[in-house]
């Protein structure tokens, strides 16, 4: 399986990369970890004429906690997010999400920024960053802009990136005390894309009332979706079993799956969204009570 011919560029700075992107327009594609792009090229689903390899640009791989936020360089590998103590301690949801992406070799190469830019509705990061209400920084040849992840993920394999822009940073607020998160993924086998997955991030006050809730969904719509109805069921209410059941049912309503010949019917995916939302909320609550963020 050999890709079509292409011209290869390895810029040493973001400025150089964006000027190449500006010059070549839609003919160019950015190569980050390559674990999605290279299979696409080998199967000839896509054959970009120019490949801009950003792996030689210094300063795009980092995890930094500052000013109440966790800032992550777009080229940070899934494996780094999986094993980082800072991530585990501050935003456990990211750690758990990273640990179920692809397989170990894929996690050693694949990047969070590449995954989000690819905007695969089966991508795991989108749901987690939605649940955390993350923001993304995008650099163009002249302008830098910042947007909510909800606006960045536009449609299936479509992000808000213009052809001359690069995603450079992912930033999420570090959850306060009494917060908990969980990423629950149903997969046929290790390394498969999700059949359905649910990311949950909650904060509970000392009386047991939910003060904030973020829920993101994977593989049950044209893109990673925010389960807004489910969030609204939780916020402002004590987390009784009845509330949990209602929230899980609302998450299934928020899902917009289409049948997948390999991974199940729309009905099955909706039902699994309900089951995994329920389990995710329960796990997030227990972590919020246990003090783990």
């Amino acid at each position: 399986m050999i890709p079509r011919k292409f011209e290869y560029f390895a810029p040493r700075s973001i400025k150089e990369a964006t000027s190449l992107l500006k010059k070549f327009g839609p003919d160019a594609k950015i190569l980050a970890g390559g674990v999605s792009l290279i299979p696409v090229m080998k199967l000839r689903f896509g054959s970009p004429a120019k490949i801009i390899d950003i792996n030689r640009i210094p300063g795009l791989e980092y995890i930094r906690a500052s000013g109440g936020r966790l800032n992550i360089g777009a080229l940070t590998r899934h494996a780094e997010l999986e094993r980082s103590k800072t991530v585990k301690d501050r935003v456990f949801l990211l750690s758990e999400t990273a640990s179920v992406i692809g397989d170990p070799q894929v996690r050693n190469m694949g990047t969070i920024g590449g995954s989000l830019s690819h905007s695969d509705p089966s991508g795991d990061w989108g749901a987690a960053i939605i649940a955390l209400r993350g923001e993304l920084t995008i650099q163009g040849p002249r302008k830098r802009r910042r947007m909510k992840v909800d606006d960045f993920l536009v449609d299936t394999f479509t992000s808000a990136l213009q052809p001359d822009e690069i995603l450079t940073e992912i930033s999420v607020p570090i959850p306060p005390a009494r917060s908990g998160g969980a990423y629950m993924k149903l997969e046929r086998n290790l390394g498969d894309f999700a059949t359905a997955a649910v990311a949950v991030q909650l904060t509970i006050d000392p009386k047991g009332v939910c003060t904030s809730a973020g829920i993101g969904l994977t593989a049950v719509g044209p893109k990673n979706l925010r389960a807004e109805k489910a969030e609204n069921v939780l916020v402002g209410h004590p987390l009784t079993p009845k509330t949990l059941e209602e929230a899980a049912a609302a998450a299934a309503e928020d899902a917009q799956p289409i049948p997948d010949p390999l991974r199940g019917s729309a009905e099955y995916k909706k039902e699994m969204t309900r089951v995994y939302a329920r389990r995710g909320i329960e796990r997030a609550i227990s972590r919020a009570k246990g003090g783990k963020k």
Partner: peptide
């Protein structure tokens, strides 16, 4: 699978130029 700069990777999913 090979070891690339200390990490295991799938060498069918990387270009030699990288």
């Amino acid at each position: 699978t090979i070891i690339y700069n200390g990490k295991s990777i799938k060498s069918c999913t990387m270009f030699a130029v990288q």
